[in-house]
């Protein structure tokens, strides 16, 4: 895994390393089974089209799991995701790259915790933010 990230390594405005996912229809079926989400719009194309969609779409909650993966990859073993918010603003199709991205918006020490706030989002191949959100992370400090 990546080396440990410390509070002092983070500056407001820096980017979180991008995580590129490529959710295939097979992955959506695995997620359906693992998460218990059997809504057919995520694996039955005819059903999806009948509801007015262009085709199968990626589970919004899988996108949240991807964003958590991006965050936990970055913050390392000693970092902690404290808060997470995410809104489903656009649908994503399977079998194309989905970029998970983020940017640091604030950092502060509160109640002894070294906190970092970020904007986070998933991005489709057209560059549109389909699941924007925010996260508050707690990092270890070199000062301790």
């Amino acid at each position: 895994m990546a080396k440990q990230l410390y509070y002092e390594d983070v500056e407001v405005g820096i980017d979180i390393p991008t995580l590129v996912k490529h959710p295939t229809t097979q992955q959506l079926v695995k997620w359906a089974g693992a998460s218990g989400d059997y809504y057919q719009i995520h694996y039955d194309k005819d059903f999806a089209i009948a509801t007015g969609l262009d085709g199968i779409i990626v589970h919004g909650r899988l996108k949240i799991a991807f964003l958590v993966q991006m965050l936990t990859d970055w913050i390392g073993d000693e970092g902690k995701v404290k808060k997470l918010a995410c809104q489903h603003r656009g649908m994503d199709l399977p079998a194309v790259d989905m970029k998970c991205k983020g940017k640091v918006t604030n950092k502060y020490v509160k109640d002894g915790e070294h906190c970092v706030e970020c904007e986070i989002w998933t991005e489709n191949p057209e560059g549109r933010k389909t699941a924007p959100g925010t996260a508050t992370l707690v990092l270890p400090s070199r000062g301790k």
Partner: peptide, 29 residues
């Protein structure tokens, strides 16, 4: 991973509610 709590099987028993509108969407949270 904390993302497990976003999975449908972890949302718990939602109280039943009848809303007379045909379509549904997950918004986020």
């Amino acid at each position: 991973p904390p993302g497990i709590l976003a999975a449908i099987m972890m949302v718990g028993n939602r109280p039943p509610i009848e809303i007379p509108l045909p379509r549904g969407l997950d918004g986020g949270g």
